[in-house]
Every structure is written in structure tokens, then in C-alpha cells.
Amino acid sequence: MSVMSFVRPAALREGDVVAALSLSSGFVARVPHRYEAGRRQVRAELGWRVVPAPNALRGEAYLYRNPQARADDLHWALENREVAGLLSTLGGDDSVRLLPLLDPAVIRAHPKVFLGFSDSTVTHLQFLRAGVTSFHGPALLTDLAEHGGMHGYVSRGVRQAVMDARGFRLRPAPEWTEQHREWLDPDLQEVRRTFAPSGGWVWLQGERPVQGHLMGGCLEVLDMLNGTPGWPEPALWRGAVLCLETSEDVPAPAQVGYWLRNFAAQGLLAGAAGLVLARPRGYTPERVEALYGWVRRVLWEAGREDLPVLANVDFGHTSPQLTLPFGAQARLDPALDVFEVLEGGVTA
């Protein structure tokens, strides 16, 4: 099987300017204290100077009515020589509306680190379709603006993915949380959340080691993207280690199974090298077991009982979360309990 090759952007360095982009929701304008906390913590932990794209702070109503302004911000950040990287402020639910407005030639001509998750799945896949590595990780308003300071697991994960040109081994977070702190209340910004010990990751099936390029994203967003001109070509899926997560919508386990059946019908599971599932947000232990049952069922239906599946992984809608370099080669080894990125997603 041939190995997919992607253009790798330059590694971010301390002192770099990174543009904050609101490519979906403009909620950031309602929580200026959270935005400023994120900027401070990014500067303190990563050394970057965050600046807003021209339209990023113009508010929910304006950005909803003006998808062109959001696409313009992406192109502006890519073409601006003073901007070294791109950072999503938050997710949302309508990045798919940007598809007719995005220019893949600009993405290809100006490869830069793009970091985000959730609805940023749309943008990540357009980077991959343009042949450029992209980075599924925390947004400015989420883990980067964590209450009371950025979690060390998050800052280390970002650094190893976008500031180091070497490969790295991924490891479970020692703790995690879903505790809610009201973002609209500035007085709660410095009140740390309570974290519980992590149960670690779990292998659902598989025995032999596999290798492939990372790709995927939020399943609800992939469902919106499916069938549009922004859906990746079959060759891009072939040989991939699929990294899939669910959002705060908490889809039923059966719904996840239906989405995977769609992937099977398209031949995406037949051609996959491996599957990595994020810790599902808002699930009870019973719901988690039902989810895993559906995953095994669909893979049996697809004749992929051989496919290595690693679950409960710390990415997506969980805290703290990893940063995954989509497009980089990765290796799964169930026997040795290994999930590692074999090459840097950036260049030195």
C-alpha cells in the first residue's frame, strides 16, 4: 500500500504570531475575559502572540450572516507573512457553509499550522485535500483557556505536535474532567475544575501492528460534510488511521453505529489501517459499553475483525486533550500497547 505524502508547515516557535480565527461560531465576542485568558495562557505556556483575524471578534450574528468574512479570515491568515500559525477560537455547527468560498490553492501555497477541533473538522479535511498536514487539538476558548491555567498535558501535547519536527509517542492523560464552569461569568475563570483519575485507554480488538496517516474528526461534522464537494476523495481515506470523536450532542451509540455503517458502505473501513476512538463526552459507563458493542458489530459486518481499535483516547470533546497531526504517519501496536506518531507533522 502506498504511503500518503503531505506538505508539512513550518514548526511554530516561541515569539511567533498566531491568528485567532472564528470560522464557525462567533461566540468568542460574548466572552472577552475568556479570550484574553486564552491569549495570556498561550503566551505563558507556548510563547506565541495571539492576534485576532480581521473578523474573528465581530460576533455571532455578523459571522453567521457573513460566511465570506470567515473564509476571508482564513485566506488572510495564510497569506499574511507576519502570521506563523492559525488557531480556532471555538467550534460551532456551520463551517460546511464555507466550502464554496475556500481556495485550496491558497492552503497549498501557504502551508501553516492550523489548530482546532469539533467543527474545525471541515477545515482540517480541506487542508488534507489540499495536501497539507493539519492539527486536531484544543481551541483557544477550550483547553487553551482552561480555568485557572492550561493543563500540563495540553501544553505538552501542543508543543510536541506543532513545535517539534520529530515523531512522538502518545500517552493517556493521568486525569480528566467534564465538569462545567460557566464561561459567561468572569469570576469563574480562575476557579479550577475538578479532575478525576483516568481509566486509561482500551483496545477493543486487533493483534498486529499497523501504520497509516492520521485523519478523521468529529463524527457529527463528518456527517454534515458527507456527500458535499468537501468530502475527501477515496484515495485520501485509503490506509488511514481514522481518529473519530463525538461532541457534546452525545449521539446515541446506535447513531454512531449507523455512521460507521455508512463508512463501511463507502469502503472506508475496508481500506482503513486502524481506528482510534476518543473518550465520548457525556456517556455513562453503560452507554460506553453499548457504543463499543456497536463498533465491534459494524466492524464484524464489514469483515474487519482484524482492524486494531484503540478507544477512550484523550482527544476531541474531553479535557485535557491531545493534539493529533492529521496527515502524519502513525503506528498502532495492540500487543505492545503503543500509539505513536512516526514523523513530525511540521518541519524544523
Results as ranks from 00 to 15, higher is better:
4 M>S: 07
4 M>C: 02
14 E>V: 02
17 V>M: 14
17 V>N: 14
18 V>Y: 08
23 L>V: 08
25 S>M: 10
25 S>A: 15
26 G>L: 11
26 G>S: 12
27 F>N: 08
27 F>H: 09
29 A>Y: 06
30 R>Q: 05
36 E>R: 02
36 E>S: 01
37 A>F: 05
38 G>C: 12
39 R>P: 01
40 R>A: 09
40 R>Y: 02
41 Q>M: 08
47 G>L: 00
54 P>I: 05
54 P>T: 03
60 E>S: 04
60 E>Q: 05
61 A>H: 12
61 A>M: 09
64 Y>E: 02
66 N>Y: 04
67 P>D: 04
68 Q>R: 12
68 Q>V: 11
71 A>Y: 07
72 D>T: 11
79 E>W: 01
82 E>M: 01
86 L>Q: 13
89 T>D: 06
96 V>I: 15
97 R>T: 12
98 L>Q: 05
99 L>A: 03
102 L>I: 15
103 D>I: 00
106 V>W: 04
107 I>E: 00
108 R>A: 11
108 R>Q: 03
111 P>N: 05
111 P>R: 02
112 K>W: 00
116 G>A: 03
117 F>V: 11
119 D>S: 04
120 S>H: 10
122 V>N: 11
122 V>L: 14
123 T>Q: 10
123 T>C: 09
124 H>W: 12
125 L>Y: 07
125 L>W: 07
129 R>K: 10
131 G>F: 08
139 A>S: 10
143 D>L: 01
143 D>V: 01
145 A>E: 04
148 G>K: 12
150 M>F: 00
153 Y>K: 08
154 V>G: 04
155 S>F: 12
157 G>C: 12
161 A>S: 13
162 V>K: 12
162 V>H: 10
165 A>Y: 03
167 G>A: 14
167 G>M: 10
169 R>P: 08
172 P>K: 06
173 A>M: 07
174 P>A: 11
175 E>D: 15
176 W>C: 01
184 L>I: 13
190 E>S: 13
191 V>N: 10
192 R>E: 14
194 T>V: 14
195 F>Y: 02
199 G>T: 00
200 G>R: 02
202 V>N: 06
204 L>A: 05
205 Q>V: 04
205 Q>S: 07
208 R>W: 13
209 P>R: 06
210 V>S: 07
212 G>E: 05
215 M>F: 06
218 C>H: 12
224 M>D: 15
224 M>Q: 15
226 N>H: 15
227 G>A: 13
229 P>E: 14
232 P>L: 03
235 A>E: 14
244 L>F: 11
247 S>C: 12
250 V>A: 11
252 A>T: 01
254 A>R: 13
256 V>I: 14
262 N>W: 09
264 A>I: 10
271 G>Y: 05
274 G>N: 08
277 L>G: 10
279 R>Y: 14
281 R>E: 01
281 R>P: 00
283 Y>A: 08
284 T>V: 00
285 P>G: 06
292 Y>T: 00
297 R>T: 14
298 V>P: 02
298 V>T: 01
299 L>Q: 14
300 W>D: 09
302 A>Y: 01
309 V>P: 09
314 D>A: 13
317 H>T: 07
322 L>S: 12
324 L>R: 04
329 Q>C: 08
332 L>K: 05
332 L>T: 07
340 E>I: 12
340 E>Q: 15
346 V>K: 02
